[in-house]
Design a binder for these strands. Structure first.
Length: 718
DNA sequence: TCACAAACCCTTTTT
DNA sequence: GGGTTTGTGA
């Protein structure tokens, strides 16, 4: 590959960034939409093809799995060679990889498990209960928050001096209990992944030397989002003989509440001296009006490093600002605008609705259903965080590793099989006293229990042992399918009357599909099942290819772009959030968040707010967000009159995804009439995927619109 | 021990 | 409004 192939299509500044002397540390201050990910990937290609850097000498770190996957994909296309040995991933993913590879040195066993936020909450709750710490005085969420904050700072319980602070003293007590519990049970929470892998390297000089020598080039994306431990982690890996290439934008720092430190960018100048800085300010995404408005907004922040985006793309349309009477009116306005766009040939997936908090999604979801427009909501309760999925994974975990106590607790009496709290408490006590796993404890004490409990418990033990035997030689997805049936989960959710739409059962079926699609190669340090389970806790980004209107928080929209964006709920106390209004630095972060939201837009931005909103069970008066006042009105088109939204049913003949070719059997097409055993007659609205994983959206006459997996739904084309 | 109903709580953002 | 905990009766 020659140099011009790499720099082709890059502007001067981008080109300069990519081809900078490889003996230099580099900081790229890159504005929104200035092509920073592009620069990062092309830099890697440059190093490998022009400077003969080995593929496994590269370490590239990002924050989201989505971003890591995108970089990986781009690299394999550009380099046309296998890149498995290159470390590209999230901080959490790479830390996990390090811990798996060196678990003994990290004081872990090979079966250590990752705790997600829910698991962590449960454990803290139980520890507090067991130790008679009053939940009402010390809310569990706050305690959890305290613990995670300390860890994000790299601080352990032993490092804290509570002084005479009553609250810190109590939090600290739980922190100590929690640390001990996790250590004895081999549990690692998100923050622990980072701190533990940092300590691993710090305390093992030979290991550190090895990785320092191996990673000749360390590249970090979204540097403004690094927290203290992450920064220390990078600094530790930096020996002075290797080089860093950091990309960041201080105006897009929106994770301060999670411990991210913007100051880390400025610390680069001293800790990684000398470092070359390049500014990327030409924006390729948005129109002039949107950029000028965004620049004007962010200019209200103090302490910026200073940067102003520009474009040569022309002014484009003004930004619409819609004043709604209520949140229902707002939703109607947004969805009917989207419908118009679709009629004018836009794809639903070109449209995004962005909001400050997840709770705001519901009203838009309802309106989308009313208009019959396909949509997808990111965030909220993600697929793999749902109870039914976690229960299923609980069985998988227990079969894989009978010492997995978190999984044991989760499934021992689910579906209910007569093993009550009293019995579980006895098992816990025995396990604790004899330093054994809950499963082993259950086996040993079952004979000492009253007959009824003993029978129930023995039934469970037999079930797990049998499942372990029966699935030993099965592939991952068969394993999952098998355990769903033998555990009784499938039957339980099939009979679940509260699950009217059958969506829990559908989710379980989808889990089998997910297992089928799981690509094991990228986690070769682990066996297939462990890899899948870890993925389930670290990566919940589902498929992104779809034909749906995108709904998400502004936080999760970071790094993405959409032709049409509706930034909704622009009201004081909502956005900016009420919790931020008394603290200037929090308000600055809200403003950056607004800036991030606005700069996602390619063509047309609509802002909206309601003057009356039904919130927490009552109607509240709302005032327009201060951010609206901070945008000069010459960029705005204020729509004051009530939008006359007429609700029309979305016409299925007016197809919006004709670019998807139906399968050759010709049965599946948009508008096709189908029959489902349970839901009755319906019409195909949309579909995605291929072969066995085809998902079809159907509008049923009786039960409304649903997404079904065709291989399970047993659809009849009529 | 379990199922259901009533009461009670919260309510920002996420790897 | 909605998810979770608590209380009650079987």
């Amino acid at each position: 590959m020659n140099l011009s192939e790499i720099t082709n299509g890059l502007n001067d500044k981008q080109c300069q960034s990519v081809t900078l002397n490889n003996e230099k540390n580099v900081l790229i201050l890159a504005g929104a939409g200035s092509g920073k990910t592009r620069v990062l990937t092309h830099r890697i290609v440059y190093l490998i093809t022009q400077k003969d850097i080995r593929i496994d000498a590269i370490l590239a770190v990002t924050f989201t799995n989505k971003a890591a996957a995108a970089i990986r994909e781009k690299l394999s296309i550009l380099l046309r060679r296998p890149i498995q040995s290159m470390w590209v991933g999230t901080f959490h993913g790479l830390a996990h990889r390090l811990l798996r590879a060196h678990y003994e040195k990290a004081r872990l066993t090979s079966g250590f498990q990752i705790l997600d936020a829910q698991d962590q909450f449960r454990i803290i709750k139980r520890l507090m209960k067991e130790n008679n710490i009053d939940e009402s005085k010390f809310p569990i969420r706050k305690v959890q928050w305290f613990i995670n904050n300390q860890k994000d700072e790299g601080i352990r319980a032993q490092d804290i001096d509570p002084g005479y602070n009553y609250f810190i003293k109590n939090n600290l007590e739980v922190f100590e209990l929690y640390e001990a519990h996790c250590q004895t049970n081999d549990l690692i929470d998100f923050a622990e992944l980072l701190i533990r892998s940092y300590e691993l390297l710090k305390n093992n000089t030979d290991l550190l030397n090895h990785y320092q020598a191996r990673f000749e080039h360390i590249l970090v994306d979204e540097f403004q989002d690094t927290n203290t431990v992450q920064y220390k982690w990078i600094k530790l890996l930096f020996s002075g003989n290797n080089r860093v290439f950091c990309v960041g934008d201080d105006d897009q720092s929106i994770y301060g509440w999670r411990g991210a430190k913007i100051e880390n960018i400025t610390k680069l100048y001293t800790d990684f001296f000398p470092i070359e800085t390049i500014h990327l300010e030409q924006n390729y995404r948005s129109t002039g009006n949107i950029l000028n408005a965004s620049n004007a907004l962010i200019a209200h922040n103090t302490n910026r490093m200073g940067k102003s985006l520009w474009t040569d793309a022309g002014n484009g349309e003004l930004i619409d600002v819609y004043k709604a009477r209520t949140e229902t009116d707002e939703a109607d306005y947004v969805i009917s605008s989207i419908q118009k766009l679709i009629t004018d040939d836009a794809s639903p997936s070109d449209c995004a609705i962005l909001y400050r908090s997840n709770a705001q999604s519901r009203i838009f979801e309802e309106a989308l259903i009313k208009y019959n427009i396909p949509y997808i909501i990111y965030g909220g309760l993600r697929f793999l965080e749902r109870a039914e999925i976690k229960n299923a994974l609980g069985y998988l975990r227990l079969i894989e590793n009978s010492a997995d106590n978190v999984a044991f607790e989760r499934v021992v009496n689910f579906p209910t099989r007569g093993i009550g709290n009293t019995t579980v408490e006895k098992i816990r006590t025995f396990a604790q006293d004899n330093h054994t796993s809950l499963f082993q404890a259950a086996i040993q004490i079952s004979s000492t229990l009253p007959t009824r409990s003993a029978n129930a418990l023995n039934g469970f033990i037999k079930l797990i042992e049998q499942m372990t035997d029966n699935t030993k030689y099965l592939g991952l997805s068969e394993k999952v399918a098998n355990l769903l049936n033998t555990s009784g989960l499938m039957v339980h959710y099939s009979n679940d009357k509260t699950d009217k739409a059958g969506s829990k059962k559908e989710n379980l079926e989808e889990l089998i599909t997910a297992a089928q699609q799981y690509n094991h190669e990228q986690d070769s340090e682990m066996n297939e099942v462990v890899g899948f389970i870890s993925l389930a806790s670290l990566d919940f980004s589902g498929d992104t290819i779809n034909q749906n209107v995108q709904l998400m928080t502004i936080h999760s929209a970071k790094g993405l772009e959409f032709p049409y964006v509706f930034l909704v709920g622009m009201e004081e106390d909502l956005f900016p959030s009420r919790q931020s209004k008394d603290e200037p630095h929090l308000m600055d972060e809200e403003r950056r968040l607004c800036y991030v939201g606005m700069t996602r837009v390619m063509k047309k931005l609509s802002l909206s707010y309601a003057i009356k909103r039904f919130l927490h069970g009552e109607f509240l008066h709302a005032y327009p967000s201060r951010f609206l006042d901070e945008i000069p009105s010459r960029y705005l088109n204020k729509i004051k009159a009530k939008f006359s939204a007429t609700i029309q049913n979305y016409n299925a003949d007016n197809t919006f995804n004709q670019n998807i070719t139906p399968k050759s059997d010709g049965q599946l097409f948009i508008g096709a009439p189908v029959k489902h055993a349970k839901f009755g007659l319906g019409t195909v609205l949309n579909f995605e995927g291929q072969d066995d994983s085809v998902r079809i959206q159907i509008k049923f006459k009786q039960v409304g619109t649903k997404w079904l997996i065709s291989s399970y739904a047993n659809l009849e084309f009529v």
